[in-house]
Nucleic acid binder design. Structure first.
Ligand code: SF4
Ligand code: SF4
Lengths: 139, 139
DNA sequence: GGAGAATTCCATTTGCAAGTGGTAATTACC
DNA sequence: GGTAATTACCACTTGCAAATGGAATTCTCC
């Protein structure tokens, strides 16, 4: 399971995508509409800003907005920033690789199985972007 | 990422598969060979026994063993017991479904995306069993 | 039936994610 | 320049997973 933090991040981004190019959005507005604890959401959005996913503006009329077009940011990218590894095991992670002590990879079947699982997940998450979070128009 | 607990469980099961039909295996032996904290491993193996994955024998000559043939137990099954949900979101879990408050699934794109991710993962984990953890013979 | 070997069970500590609170810094507007 | 609105930052609390400690139970073997 993704951490709560990541789930909140995704929801917030969904909201920001829906309001893309409509000016800054208040943290409090996102928090209320998406039922996210306000102060926790502050931390999350700030982290996304530091990683250039979001941009912000202080003071009256300020708020948060996407930094680039939604198509430019993959879900995998977002999850790696907020959650960390996407792989289910440390030793099959592409960006956070870490073997367990005294690893003999040639004798470890677990490794191979979770490489498969990782590739299956990445095949989905690398190919979806924030644009895929945009809500379809009402009929 | 899978929790440490689940990672330990998988490693322990790998060891038990390798010694399938060779009589009971000591917890302490598994802990030492697989570098797992002894007391923590106790809890994990006990939980697996309560869920009929493992069997145990007390006293001298006792220990843990698989309850059935390795082919009978899928990795998905093991993970659900030790870790809980396999899906990345509560609302796309088959066995642990839980929506967030005020869910409007028709308007939520996140949901659909993670259904895809879930199916990709399950396609791997449901079709692998403990038998796939058996080490290939040395050449 | 007693001694030793092993699992089982329960209670506690530790460490980190989740969540909260308060203050500083920045900006817009009059 | 003063005031209100907003993000930014820092420090703390809470809750749960991870890990540990110790005593109870069951079994084997002599
Ligand atoms: S022993 Fe197996 S699971 Fe551990 S790091 Fe090596 S390959 Fe990965
Ligand atoms: S709002 Fe979306 S993410 Fe939340 S429970 Fe409903 S479908 Fe799932």
């Amino acid at each position: 399971m993704l951490s709560k933090k990541t789930q909140y991040a995704l929801k917030a981004l969904e909201y920001l995508v829906a309001h893309y190019n409509q000016g800054p959005v208040l943290i409090s507005e996102i928090a209320e509409k998406k039922h996210i604890p306000l102060k926790f959401l502050e931390n999350i959005l700030l982290e996304l800003r530091h990683h250039d996913i979001l941009d912000s503006k202080k003071g009256k009329g300020g708020g948060y907005m996407l930094r680039t077009e939604p198509e430019k940011t993959s879900l995998a990218n977002v999850i790696r920033i907020v959650e960390g590894p996407i792989a289910m095991l440390p030793c099959v992670s592409l960006y956070f690789y870490q073997p367990c002590e005294s690893c003999d990879q040639t004798q470890c079947r677990i490794h191979d199985l979770f490489i498969e699982a990782r590739d299956a997940i990445l095949n989905v998450l690398e190919n979806k972007t924030l644009a895929d979070l945009r809500q379809t128009a009402l009929v």
